[in-house]
Amino acid sequence: ETALEFYADANVEDYIQLPWTSITTIGANVSGKRVSRHFEIWTDKGKFLFASKDSGKILKIAREHIGNDKVVRLPTLLQKIAGIFKKKK
């Protein structure tokens, strides 16, 4: 496996391949043990947003290819809002 591939549900011919070597970070929101459907992938070409019911499995596979340090927890919406108010003080 040299790349992460995502296919559109509506049309499997509509897909994107992201080579593992180009991925710098993958992140998702985690609440307790639940991983959000939505996750973000940063590459040397930019940021991509994806949604999958199997996002937890995808992140585990990503760890095997790019390492633990590149798979991160993203702040939740509440954490982002709390951060905004902390900065204003």
Rank of each mutant, 00 (worst) to 15 (best):
A51Y: 00
A82Y: 03
T76P: 14
P75G: 09
R37G: 08
L74T: 15
N68W: 06
S22W: 03
Q17H: 09
S31N: 10
I16S: 03
K88P: 02
Q79L: 01
P19V: 07
K57I: 12
A3P: 04
I41T: 11
K86R: 09
P75I: 03
T24L: 10
L18I: 15
A62L: 03
G56Q: 05
N29A: 07
S22P: 02
V72W: 04
L49A: 07
Q79S: 14
E40D: 12
W42Y: 09
F6T: 10
S31L: 11
K80P: 13
V71I: 15
I84F: 14
V12R: 09
V72H: 02
I81G: 14
A8L: 08
G56K: 07
I84S: 12
L18A: 10
H38R: 00
W42R: 10
I81Q: 15
S52T: 11
V35F: 02
I66R: 01
R73W: 03
F50C: 05
A8C: 13
D14K: 14
R34L: 11
Q79H: 06
F6A: 13
N29Y: 00
K47V: 15
G27R: 02
V71P: 11
K45V: 15
V35C: 09
L4V: 06
G46E: 06
K70L: 07
N29F: 00
I84A: 11
T43G: 15
E64A: 12
S55L: 04
E40W: 00
A10N: 09
Q79R: 09
V72M: 11
A51C: 06
